[in-house]
Simulated scan of single mutants.
Amino acid sequence: MIAGWFTGDGEGFRLLGTRCSACSTVFFPREDTHCRNPHCPGGRLVEAPLSRRGHVWSYTDSRYRPPSPYVTDRELPWVPYTLIAVELPAERLVVLGQAAPGVTVADLTVGMEVEVVPGVLHEDTETTWTTWQWRPTGVGA
């Protein structure tokens, strides 16, 4: 994925956004040039680790192979995956990401608590592309 969008591992894994010092608006993906809030006079943008837990806002499964720049081995059969839109109430934003391996749409409900975890988007003999994924916490809504 893109450098600077997440950091750490295990319990220390976090998505990294930015927060405007003038209006406190949080951005993800991060914004490093200017505040995107049209009502803000503009302020310094500072790195802001996002909440590790949020609630399922929406979800679906991906039944088709996405076009480039999505990395996939065209020689292998396509395996559908689950996408989850997660609301982070403290930041007042929704972050989209894949579900952790083994999590299907049958395992999810709107409002369910999930947490961000590190995951593998794709790997080959030379490179492993890491990303974030969402996993149910078992706590409920």
Rank of each mutant, 00 (worst) to 15 (best):
2 I>F: 14
4 G>K: 14
4 G>M: 07
7 T>Y: 08
9 D>K: 14
10 G>N: 09
10 G>H: 10
10 G>P: 00
12 G>F: 05
15 L>F: 12
15 L>W: 09
16 L>S: 09
18 T>E: 05
20 C>L: 06
21 S>Y: 03
23 C>R: 01
26 V>W: 08
26 V>C: 07
28 F>Q: 06
29 P>F: 08
30 R>H: 13
31 E>L: 11
32 D>M: 07
33 T>P: 00
34 H>K: 09
34 H>L: 01
36 R>W: 05
36 R>M: 10
36 R>N: 10
40 C>E: 01
41 P>Y: 00
42 G>R: 09
43 G>F: 09
43 G>C: 04
43 G>R: 08
45 L>W: 10
48 A>Y: 13
49 P>Q: 09
51 S>N: 10
53 R>C: 12
54 G>V: 11
54 G>F: 08
55 H>K: 14
57 W>N: 14
59 Y>T: 04
61 D>E: 15
61 D>I: 07
64 Y>H: 15
64 Y>N: 12
64 Y>A: 13
65 R>A: 13
66 P>H: 00
68 S>N: 06
70 Y>Q: 05
71 V>D: 02
73 D>R: 04
73 D>M: 00
75 E>K: 05
76 L>F: 03
76 L>Y: 00
78 W>N: 14
78 W>A: 14
78 W>R: 15
79 V>Q: 15
82 T>Q: 09
83 L>F: 07
89 P>W: 08
89 P>L: 04
91 E>I: 10
92 R>W: 08
93 L>P: 06
95 V>Q: 01
96 L>G: 01
99 A>Y: 03
101 P>K: 05
102 G>T: 04
105 V>D: 05
106 A>M: 05
107 D>M: 09
108 L>K: 14
110 V>I: 13
111 G>Q: 02
111 G>T: 12
112 M>K: 13
112 M>S: 13
114 V>A: 11
114 V>I: 09
116 V>E: 00
117 V>C: 00
118 P>Q: 14
119 G>W: 03
123 E>V: 01
125 T>M: 13
126 E>N: 15
128 T>G: 03
129 W>F: 14
129 W>P: 00
130 T>C: 07
131 T>Y: 12
131 T>C: 12
133 Q>G: 01
133 Q>L: 03
134 W>H: 07
134 W>M: 00
135 R>P: 02
135 R>C: 02
136 P>Y: 12
138 G>W: 08
139 V>Y: 01
139 V>A: 11
139 V>T: 11
139 V>I: 11
140 G>L: 06
